[in-house]
Design a protein around this nucleic acid. Structure first.
Lengths: 187, 187
DNA sequence: GTCTATAGTGCGATAGAC
DNA sequence: GTCTATCGCACTATAGAC
């Protein structure tokens, strides 16, 4: 038998979400999460930079998907069209686990620290988008604005999607709808 | 002579910004800020909910200004026009102290925790905007989208403004420019 | 105004995989 | 032997409880 069971990372994530749902984020200590996952608190902090990060480690996959989608977009695509493809990729990375994100959302909405981290992760995605647009020679004032606008679409659309009463709602479709509404805005 | 000097609040704010600029946010303890302001750490936490909040207490004035501007907007104004008036009010509350916000920005950009709090304050302003639009009978999916889009304008425009090399740039003008760019976006 | 719990860090030791 | 994941302990500062 191995000295330790493999997959500490996944066990910690699952233990954390379960405990946060049962007793709340603040009322759960890192030591308790670690114990439930069969490791020590010191190991928790080796996997996650801080207590909150256990709920947000999925963002890396989204970043990668968006960057790849932008790099592969047609050369003549407009900035907004490129952002649309990046949003499609985000939907691809997120949209197949609505149950998980609904549970996670309950925890996040109950705690300000977690909301802060969520916004920071979204800001990081905006940076990825802006960098991807600049890579395609979109000049910086416009690249920044389109990137931030696309993240607004992601935030608003994601919220509609997790709050929706129907399982059948597709995240990708929702994001495209919101993007259409945004570019349709008039003063 | 009074038992304590008046304006502990203002002294704490000033002491905090000075120390954060000199030695960095993380390297400064609450006890040091309190000592420089002539109070105890306990008093610091009576004035500010946590260590970070000392840099963000100005947000309340912005909230109030935006809410008032929206309530006073013409009855036939479009949602985007109402958001524009709210942005004008935000510029009014912020724009006259560019030096302060430039210094503050140096501190915030050097620390992730502070960036998280900043994003949370902006999200709070989005809530104010959405509520103000709903008050004017703008239905909720649109109210939310316009509110979040306006905060995108505020974020992008504020950043251009503090980063500008010229003292003469006006925040209100900048926000109007960015709002125009956003509603001008096409797919 | 003091006391305490918890988050988070640094470092050395350990045990297995390769 | 090297590399990696873990433990265990000592330690500081925040933040809240008493």
């Amino acid at each position: 038998m191995a000295r330790w069971e493999p997959g500490a990372d996944g066990r910690l994530r699952e233990a954390a979400l379960t405990l946060f749902l049962e007793r709340g984020y603040e009322e759960t200590t890192v030591a308790e999460i670690a114990q439930r996952a069969g490791v020590t608190a010191r190991t928790y902090f080796r996997h996650f930079a801080d207590k909150r990060e256990v709920l947000f480690s999925g963002a890396e996959g989204v970043r990668a998907g968006m960057a790849e989608a932008m790099a592969g977009a047609p050369a003549d695509a407009t900035p907004v069209a490129v952002a649309g493809l990046a949003l499609d990729a985000a939907a691809e990375a997120i949209g197949h686990r609505r149950d998980f994100y609904r549970q996670r959302q309950v925890v996040v909405e109950a705690n300000v620290e977690l909301q802060e981290r969520e916004l920071m992760k979204l800001a990081g995605l905006a940076d990825v988008l802006a960098a991807g647009l600049r890579e395609r020679d979109v000049p910086d004032p416009e690249a920044r604005l389109v990137a931030e606008a696309a993240i607004t679409v992601l935030r608003v659309g994601f919220h509609r999607w997790v709050a929706s009463a129907h399982d059948t709602v597709d995240l990708g479709v929702t994001l495209r709808e919101v993007l259409g509404e945004l570019v349709g805005l008039r003063g």
